[in-house]
Design a protein around this nucleic acid. Structure first.
Length: 468
RNA sequence: GCUCCCUUCGUCUAGCGGUCCAGGACGUUGCCCUCUCAAGGCGAAAACAGGGGUUCGAGUCCCCUAGGGAGCACCA
């Protein structure tokens, strides 16, 4: 049997962290077993589904590299098929038409709540309606068994038993004849031969209903695995309130997809004490049985740490490609300056995100607009002018513009003026970068380039000359 | 309210009856290194929700309580 898993988001928003992890687990499980990963768009809610959301989800999947083997399938394209099954269920007496009005249903619910009962349909139309009202378009309800129990042998939860008396006859087709979620899921999982349903914990309560429908349809159920939810820092379910929840927002903030993936895979799943997993490793090592069963809280700091880890350890050329995009955000053309891979190497251990790296690298390509006031006051004092002038001359005279040669020149200048290295590096930094933070000063000078460096030192001298 | 699920350091987790006075990671913190910022190295503080059982022995099994989450839609 070949494994077939699916990710089935509803297009009512972007791809968020929770959905991305569910997709990752399903993808990983299929990949690990050489199976098939299917993308299905559950868009039966015509009111809330949008084409923009579909695009956003697809874009998120692509950025993460979670490529699907089949799909995307759209449920709205499968209405004839659902109709077919609906009719079959009706004919077989496994479903029935219900003429109860929304008003009556609401009232029923209110009464049950008042009596502290679980709100549910009372089955008024279950045994047939003598005179079906012509003016009320009926909904179709599934005739759920009234006795016995449904057993869910969940791969992460273990055995969960639901009494059928707790379930009611759910609506499987609305009065406008469109099918509803619990029903379309069942038909699709059946038609698409899904073998493993890996989905959020919030669906555990839907599972017995789906199992009953599968039973009525006479097909063997898939294996279920309900993964725990991801909570926000306040313990509540992750939502827009918690900041960056859209996967694409992480791209914009300068995260590498492999870092996000690594972070997500460790949320709820573990392999001993290992923290770092390449895509290959996670597909090889992942297993649903190692998924734990308690909800986890999203921890931005750890994601940041992982991101820097990948920034530091990935191929600089790979990081450079991503950095290029972020430099573009600063109207920088990376071809007009030092090679991007060199910039990456000099900056990667002092940036946690690509956005940060880009912001800290602008000076390589563009003269700073001005000096940071605090840094200039601290380091660009008149007394340093002669030192800068001397350094300028020595750098200009340097036969070879290399990091090593530059380093020696700075050291020699410092010695000549009886200064510690830092006393000269900081002013030069401010002159070159506009502020007192940059990679090692010799590297910084080297990467900025001789012409630009001398020009910026001149400007600093001018600035100092203007000071009393 | 009812039903279902969950509960180890602040956070992510290891632990699958003895090897646990509970291990790793992020974060916090001390020291070292150092031209800035970092990165790095070596340390430190920090948890089995509470209560009953079962057992020679429980973080590990069972029950109860408390807390948290989810579901109970003509949403998915």
């Amino acid at each position: 049997m070949t494994i077939r898993t699916r990710f089935a988001p509803s297009p009512t928003g972007y791809l968020h962290i929770g959905g991305a992890r569910t997709a990752l687990f399903s993808w990983l499980y299929a990949r690990k077993h050489g199976g098939t990963f299917i993308l299905r768009i559950e868009d039966t809610d015509l009111e809330r589904s949008t084409a923009e959301s579909v695009d956003a989800i697809l874009q998120g999947m692509t950025w993460l590299g979670l490529e699907y083997d089949e799909g995307p399938f759209f449920q709205t394209h499968r209405f004839p098929r659902y109709k077919e099954i609906l009719d079959r269920l009706l004919v077989e007496g496994k479903a029935y038409r219900c003429y109860c009005t929304k008003e009556r249903l609401e009232q029923l619910r209110a009464e049950q709540m008042a009596r502290k009962e679980k709100p549910r349909y009372d089955g008024r139309c279950r045994d047939g309606v003598a005179n079906p009202p012509k003016d009320i378009p009926p909904v179709i309800r599934f005739r759920n068994p009234q006795e016995g129990a449904v057993v869910v042998d969940d791969q992460v939860r273990g055995r969960v038993v639901f009494q059928n008396t707790e379930l009611d006859d759910l609506i499987i087709a609305r009065s406008d004849s469109t099918p509803t979620y619990n029903f379309t899921v069942v038909v699709d999982d059946m038609d698409m031969n899904i073998t493993h349903v890996i989905r959020g914990d919030d669906h555990l309560n839907n599972t017995p209903r789906q199992l009953n429908m599968l039973l009525a349809l006479g097909v063997p159920p898939p294996v279920y695995a309900h993964v725990p939810m991801i909570l926000g820092a306040d313990g509540a379910r992750l939502s827009k309130r918690h900041g960056a929840v859209s996967v694409m927002q992480y791209r914009d903030e300068g995260y590498l997809p492999e870092a996000l993936l690594n972070y997500l895979v460790r949320l709820g799943w573990s392999h001993g004490d290992q923290e770092i997993f390449s895509i290959d490793e996670m597909t090889r090592l992942f297993d649903i049985v190692n998924v734990n069963n308690s909800a986890s809280t999203f921890n931005p700091d750890k994601l940041l740490w992982l991101n820097q880890h990948y920034l530091k350890s990935s191929d600089p050329a790979h990081v450079a490609r991503h950095l290029s995009h972020h430099l573009g955000q600063h109207q920088i053309d990376p071809s007009q300056g030092p090679p991007l891979t060199d910039v990456v190497i000099s900056q990667r251990e002092r940036a946690k995100t690509l956005a940060e790296m880009a912001a800290g690298s602008v000076f390589f390509y563009k003269e700073p607009d001005g000096y940071d006031e605090k840094d200039a006051n601290a380091h660009l004092k008149p007394a340093i002018a002669p030192v800068l002038a001397d350094l300028h001359a020595r750098l200009e005279a340097l036969p070879l513009w290399t990091t090593e040669a530059i380093h020696e020149v700075i050291a020699a200048t410092a010695t000549a003026h009886d200064l510690k290295l830092g006393k000269i590096a900081q002013p030069v930094r401010v002159a070159l970068c506009g502020r007192a933070v940059s990679p090692p000063i010799d590297q910084t000078l080297f990467l900025v380039g001789r012409a630009r460096a001398l020009q910026r030192i001149d400007r600093a001298l001018l600035y100092l000359g203007g000071k009393p």
